[in-house]
Amino acid sequence: MSTSFSRLGPILLGVVAIAGVACSKKGGADADQSVPVVVATARQGGFVVYRSQPGTVTPSNSVLVRSQVDGVLKSIAFSGGQMVKQGDVLAEIDPRASQAQLQLATGDLAASQAKLSNAQETLKHFEVLATQDSISAQRLADQKSLVAQYAAEVKSEQGRIGTANLQVANARITSPIAGMVGLRRVDPGNLVGPSDSRGIVVVTQSQPSKVVFSVPVNVVPRVLQGLNAGTCIPVDAYGDSPDEVLATGRLRAANNEVDPATGTVKFEAEFANTDNALLPNQFVTAKLPVQVLPQAILVPAAAVQQGAQGPFVYVINDDKTAAVVPVKLGPGDTSTAVIASGIAAGAKVVVEGADRLRSGTSVTATASAAPAPASATSAPECHNP
Rank of each mutant, 00 (worst) to 15 (best):
M1R: 11
S2L: 08
T3E: 09
S6I: 04
V15A: 14
G20F: 01
G20D: 03
V21K: 09
K25L: 07
G28H: 10
G28R: 10
D30E: 08
V37H: 00
V38I: 14
G46W: 01
T56V: 12
V57R: 04
S67H: 06
V69D: 02
V69L: 05
V72R: 15
V72Y: 15
A77D: 15
Q82W: 01
K85E: 15
E92F: 14
I93P: 00
A97H: 13
Q103W: 11
Q103I: 07
L109M: 11
S112W: 00
A114C: 10
K115S: 13
K115Y: 10
N118S: 10
T122Y: 02
H125M: 06
F126T: 14
D133G: 05
I135D: 13
A141P: 03
D142I: 06
Q143M: 06
S145V: 14
S145N: 15
Q149Y: 06
Y150V: 08
Y150W: 10
V154D: 02
V154Q: 00
K155T: 07
Q158H: 04
A164N: 10
L166P: 01
N170S: 07
M180A: 12
R185A: 11
R185C: 07
G189P: 03
L191G: 00
I200D: 15
V201N: 01
S206L: 07
S209Y: 03
V211N: 06
V212L: 10
N218M: 14
R222V: 04
G230T: 09
G230W: 14
C232L: 13
I233Y: 11
V235G: 08
V235W: 03
D236I: 01
A237N: 14
Y238K: 11
S241V: 13
P242V: 11
E244D: 15
A247R: 01
A247H: 00
R250F: 07
L251I: 08
L251T: 05
N256F: 02
N256H: 05
E257K: 04
E257Y: 04
V258T: 02
F267D: 04
A269W: 03
N276Q: 14
A277H: 02
T285Q: 08
L298T: 05
A301P: 03
A303H: 11
G307C: 12
Q309T: 11
I316H: 01
A323H: 03
G330E: 09
T334S: 14
S335H: 13
T336V: 09
V338E: 04
A340Y: 03
A344I: 04
A345L: 05
K348H: 12
V350C: 04
V350T: 01
V351K: 01
E352F: 14
D355N: 12
S359H: 15
S362C: 00
S362H: 06
A367T: 15
A367F: 04
A369F: 06
A370P: 15
T377N: 09
S378H: 14
S378E: 13
P380K: 02
P380Y: 00
C382W: 05
